[in-house]
Amino acid sequence: MSELLIEIKDLECNIDNQKILQGLNLKINKGEVHAIMGPNGSGKSTLSSVLAGNENYEVTNGSINFLGEEISEMSPEERSWKGMFLAFQYPVEIPGVSNINFLRTALNERNKYYGIDSIPAKDFLKMVAEKSELVGLNNKLKNRSVNEGFSGGEKKRNEIFQMAMLDPKLSILDETDSGLDIDALKIVANGVNKLKSSENATVVITHYQRLLDYIVPDFVHVLHEGKIIKSGDKSLALELEKKGYDWLKTDENI
């Protein structure tokens, strides 16, 4: 019997008074990979932002239970400490703050929350070396300012590198495949796969089936107008690839 990681119930949310999510339900167990697909504007990125706690989105109804705790009122950092990780679709540039300093601060802040001593510099650097290998992140990039001047692919790899460093329970990959060529895609997917365990889960948000060839989902959900309108296994993704989304929309309308 697998263990429940997150349960989203009747989630509704607004941005600028516009309803984006309209009663979304989703359950994810440890060890699972879920793919969320859907046309533009269906609410995919909103879902990831809401789960990570972006305050620009107002949760108007529903609940998010993460590891037995209601988190919809929780600050983003607290969610992170509990094991939530969002790989951003557009990683932000932070001038003057080196990647290394940034990550070390992130780890130490979490340690502090759990009352653990901060990680010694030596161990930290060892960890960095280990984890960056996972996505083949260039040494130089680690010392550069966060995402500043990175190419699209480098930014995405950097996201996965950070994911490896933070070892989250739930990783949400928001359109991580966008802007990646096939080689970069493989590297990123490979990194994600290596980080998979029976203790964590992954949510892959994507437009295309392509990524799912490399990160194989246990479940595929179709998001439309802020709701999951269909769920299935991997074959659903292939079907979507062939038929597009329209047949589902009509289905729903009937």
Partner: peptide, 30 residues
């Protein structure tokens, strides 16, 4: 101070106060 930068740091588990200090230090680093 960039809200998106703050949010990004906080998502990575850095408290707002720490994040402000990080960003300000980065800003003044030059």
């Amino acid at each position: 101070i960039g809200e998106d930068q703050l949010f990004y740091c906080m998502q990575r588990g850095i408290s707002e106060e720490k994040a402000i200090s990080l960003i300000v230090n980065g800003y003044a680093k030059e």
